[in-house]
Design a protein around this nucleic acid. Structure first.
Lengths: 336, 336
DNA sequence: CGCTCGAATCGAAACGTTTGCGTCGTCGCC
DNA sequence: GGCGACGACGCAAACGTTTCGATTCGAGCG
């Protein structure tokens, strides 16, 4: 591989001139510039990003850690981040944490060691917040994506989870539902905790007793599965709300296991949702994250911080929209 | 940030000793090793991957380019690659090409400039093969994933597309189907071309006239949509086969547009398929790629090549399995 | 003509590692 | 006791850039 020294020799100039031609960092005589460019062409020279990054303090790359880039919501975020990164000539280094604090920590150090200019992080459920807080001392700034932590002094971008859930519950109450199962999942995940709060907000709005509602909370899928199946099985709830896509598959499986049809016998809604929601039945009512925009926003926050390191951290909440579909339609017809 | 020089000073040794301690590249007195390790602890030293990569000729990172990491099949492959990469202490640099030759080319140069040790590539549809062939001259070896090109001298890993399609068609013929619509899509994509070949194999096996079958081929989604709707609408086919997930959504949309129910009025099968195929109806019969394994295999081929650069290129075909579901079940009951 | 000034370019020191080669003891052996 | 060998480590040259003075050269001016 040709190096800058080769180019310089061929063009009959010094390496510094070559560098300046390449980066436009200072004026160089048009004639010499042409010679240099020709020499670059001749030698097939390509810049060595590594050596470059080493001299400058930047790598023009950013890191992104999510729990699973295959999950529809995250996939969208990844697209957004990728798009914004490309627009700003940044390379994206992606890592999956698989909701595992240890893998996450490994990913963080790997990326930091690689001197990413910034890190976008959707914390895993089991993440130790204080460990993340320690990232404040790193040279690279951190932006929290989706999984927000109020106590941490980072830029953050998420959705208005609490308000959306509240609106969803209001809608269902209006349709006549009074008994809910909400599959909240691992509420150590802030996103899920916020959604659960919104659920209680909605209950209050509808003057419903929260004691008679069933909240499936926790890490153990089989426990939550059993709870859903049992509650719905004995007819103690008419509506099921899942707080994420994996939880939705869990809930739907539970409903199938007790032979309850959606929306015939029980209404169902979820957050984040499935791909192609209109192709299959039941078409499920979904609170959809503006995931793509969240990804793009995260990059923008990162860039903003890079150019103004000392400004105070910003938190951006993007609006979620509720996509009403068949799975919550039954009660509109039997409504008194 | 502390450097090796700092560590060396604190430990009272030379940088070379520090380096050797870190890499285990030569014996060092247990006592000195302890001093060095303590010094590392004290100074909070962390290796600079960049400087390291620059001195060695390796970066311990590999690149992966797919058209869309959100697409279920690719998502699985990404997982596989990621897993295998992690197991071998490799960092993964991921890029999406969005089926666009230009973006793909950009991604390739970006990654090559970053001196990845190897590149795994699922070519986009519009890729210019000769441009890819030129990658043979790069310092980093290339492995083709999923989208195979027989003429290119690279290691490759894919699925037995042709045979699987043949088996699928055989199955459908056995059920009594004689009129097919196959949504083949952009047959510049080798995977899709292979599946189409398999379709004709299957027809021959069943002694069916290929002239009376409808093949929707091409890039224009609306054209294929119209073809499917028209053919099925006038009852000229009893089975629809989609050759990829996006094509399946297209086909199902078309079926909905002419109010044909699956599997009541028409049988349907697809390649690659959807997530959670058992949760929604119709449950669609799917030829499932061993995507995860393909990803892992790709990394293994890469590592093998790195350690034996001159061995001749290998092509690995992994077996796909057909998951039979409701969407192709109707005819089993009306079978004569 | 000598001097200053500015534009264009060069030279060389970094950046933080790895690594081949050298040095310095120490130990064993005859 | 001298000598060779060997083990433990230090020195310094790379790797391919960027960048900060330094240098050169010609023009302009008094």
């Amino acid at each position: 591989m040709a190096t800058m020294v080769d180019v310089a020799r061929v063009a009959g100039v010094s390496t510094s001139t070559v560098s300046h031609v390449l980066n436009g960092t200072r004026n160089v005589e048009p004639a010499t510039r042409r010679r240099v460019l020709a020499a670059i062409e001749d030698t097939g020279y390509r810049q060595d990003t590594l050596a470059r990054a080493m001299r400058r303090a930047r790598t023009d790359s950013i890191g992104l850690i999510v729990s699973d880039a295959g999950e529809p919501a995250f996939a969208e975020m990844v697209h957004g981040v990728e798009q914004a990164a490309a627009e700003n000539d940044l390379t994206l280094l992606l890592a999956n944490s698989a909701e595992d604090a240890q893998r996450e920590q490994r990913a963080i150090t790997t990326l930091m060691n690689r001197r990413v200019d910034g890190l976008i992080l959707a914390c895993s459920a089991s993440t130790d917040i204080s460990a993340i807080g320690a990232l404040g001392d790193e040279r690279a700034p951190v932006v929290l994506l989706d999984r927000l932590h109020r106590t941490l002094p980072f830029d953050q971008v998420g959705a208005d989870n609490r308000e959306s859930m509240r609106a969803l519950v209001n809608h269902l109450v209006e349709q006549g539902h009074t008994g809910f199962v909400v599959v909240a999942g691992d509420t150590r995940v802030p996103t899920l905790a916020e959604r659960l709060e919104g659920f209680h907000d909605g209950l209050r709005d509808g003057h419903l007793h929260s004691g008679s509602q069933v909240v499936c909370e926790g890490v153990d899928a089989s426990v939550m599965f059993a709870q859903v199946a049992e509650t719905v099985g004995r007819g103690a709830a008419s509506a099921v709300i899942a707080c994420s896509t994996p939880l939705a598959t869990l809930a739907l499986n539970a409903l199938q296991s007790v032979n309850r049809s959606v929306p015939g016998e029980v209404a169902f809604a979820t957050f984040d949702g499935f791909r192609n929601p209109d192709l299959f039945s039941p078409r499920v009512t979904t609170v959809r994250q503006p995931a793509y925009d969240m990804g793009m926003t995260a990059v923008q926050l990162l860039l903003a911080r890079l150019s103004a390191p000392e400004s105070s951290p910003r938190t951006v909440r993007l609006h979620q929209s509720i996509e009403l579909r068949d799975s919550t339609e039954a009660f509109t017809f039997t409504k008194p």
